[in-house]
C-alpha cells in the first residue's frame, strides 16, 4: 500500500520518466509561447528566456549548495520557468522574472523537498507573490502589437464592467475571433486561446494530464456564469484571462492536485467555483491563479477524504 501514500514524487503512470513527461509538457506549452512572442514582441521572448534560465539556475545552484543530486535534467524547472513567464505581463522588468523564479524554485519547491513535495504550484505561487508585492507592474496589461489588436481594457475588465452593470454586452470591443487568436491585452502566455487549447488537448490525448480537472473546472465556470450573465457571458469568460492556461497546465500539476478521480473532479469544481467567486464578487477581474492556489491548499484535505484506506491501517505520523 505504501506505493499509494499521499507523498512525494510526481505520480507517474506507465513507464514514463519525469523527464519525458516534462519535455512533453514543454512541447505542449510551445504554441502558447510562440503566440505570445508574436502578439507581444521581443520583450516577451526575453522574459521567457530569463524565467527559464533563472529557474534552471536556481535549481542547479540550490542542489549543488546542499550537496544533493542535481536534477535539472528532469526539465521540471524549465516547465516552471515557462509557466511563470506566461503569467507575466510582457512589459514586466527583468528583475520581476528573476525574483519570481527564486520564489518559485527555492521558497516554494526546494525548501519543501524538491519535485513532488511542494504543496502549492511553484509558478502560480510566485505569480501571486509578485502580484501582491508589485501590483502596479503585475496588473498593467500592455495591448498586443499585432495589427487590429483590441486596445484599452482587457476583455476580463470589460466583462467586469458588464457584470457590474456599468457597461452593456453589445458595447464590448472584442469578439470570439479576438479571444481565440489572442490579439488583446493580458499576460504574455494566456491570451491566445487556440494555442493553449491545442497544447492542452495534446497533453490529454497523450495521457499526461487527467481530463477530469480541466473539464470539471471549465464546466463549473461555464455553468456559474450561465446563471449570472447568460450564454455569451459564459463563453467569453471561458475564453478570457488565465482560465484556459490554468485549467490545462497549472491545475493539473501532479504534486498539487488530488490523486483520486473523484478528488480531481472536486478539485476542478472548486477551482471553477472560487474563480467565479473572485471574478464576480471582488474588486479583481481575474481570479484564476488564486482559485487554483486555494484548491492546492485544499488538496491534502481532499486526498484525506477521498483516498481509500485499508481498514485497520495504522497511519504513520511524522
Amino acid at each position: 500500500m505504501s506505493n499509494f501514500a499521499v507523498t512525494s514524487s510526481p505520480h507517474l503512470r506507465k513507464n514514463a520518466t519525469t523527464q519525458r513527461i516534462m519535455m512533453e509538457v514543454c512541447l505542449a506549452l510551445a504554441p502558447a509561447g510562440i503566440a505570445g512572442i508574436i502578439l507581444f514582441g521581443f520583450n516577451a521572448a526575453l522574459l521567457i528566456a530569463i524565467c527559464v534560465a533563472s529557474c534552471v539556475l536556481c535549481e542547479f545552484v540550490w542542489q549543488k549548495a546542499n550537496k544533493q543530486q542535481v536534477t535539472v535534467s528532469d526539465w521540471s524547472a524549465v516547465v516552471t520557468g515557462l509557466l511563470l513567464a506566461y503569467n507575466l505581463p510582457s512589459n514586466a522588468p527583468w528583475w520581476i522574472a528573476v525574483v519570481g523564479s527564486v520564489i518559485a524554485i527555492i521558497l516554494v519547491k526546494q525548501m519543501f523537498g524538491g519535485i513532488g513535495s511542494n504543496f502549492m504550484n511553484p509558478a502560480l505561487t510566485a505569480r501571486a507573490f509578485l502580484f501582491i508585492s508589485w501590483s502596479t507592474i503585475m496588473a498593467s496589461y500592455p495591448a498586443s502589437i499585432v495589427p487590429d489588436a483590441v486596445t484599452g481594457a482587457t476583455p476580463l475588465n470589460a466583462l467586469k464592467n458588464v457584470l457590474a452593470g456599468t457597461a452593456a454586452m453589445d458595447g464590448l470591443k472584442f469578439d470570439y475571433v479576438d479571444l481565440l487568436i489572442g490579439s488583446h491585452g493580458g499576460v504574455l502566455g494566456e491570451t491566445c486561446a487556440i494555442a493553449i487549447i491545442l497544447g492542452g488537448l495534446y497533453l490529454i490525448i497523450r495521457g499526461i494530464v487527467d481530463w477530469r480537472i480541466p473539464l470539471s473546472f471549465m464546466a463549473t465556470v461555464f455553468v456559474c456564469f450561465l446563471f449570472k450573465g447568460g450564454a455569451e457571458m459564459a463563453l467569453y469568460q471561458l475564453l478570457s484571462g488565465g482560465l484556459l492556461l490554468g485549467a490545462f497546465f497549472m491545475a493539473t500539476d501532479y504534486a498539487t492536485s488530488p490523486i483520486t478521480g473523484i478528488g480531481r473532479v472536486i478539485f476542478g469544481i472548486g477551482c471553477g467555483f472560487f474563480l467565479f467567486l473572485i471574478r464576480v464578487f471582488t474588486d479583481s477581474a481575474e481570479g484564476c491563479s488564486f482559485a487554483i492556489l486555494f484548491m492546492n491548499v485544499m488538496t491534502p484535505m481532499i486526498d484525506r477524504f477521498t483516498m481509500p484506506r485499508p481498514f485497520g491501517e495504522v497511519k504513520k505520523h511524522g
Partner: peptide, 11 residues
Amino acid sequence: YQPMAILVQPV
C-alpha cells in the same frame, strides 16, 4: 528600489 509590499502583510 521597489518595495516588496507582501512583506508587510500577514504572508
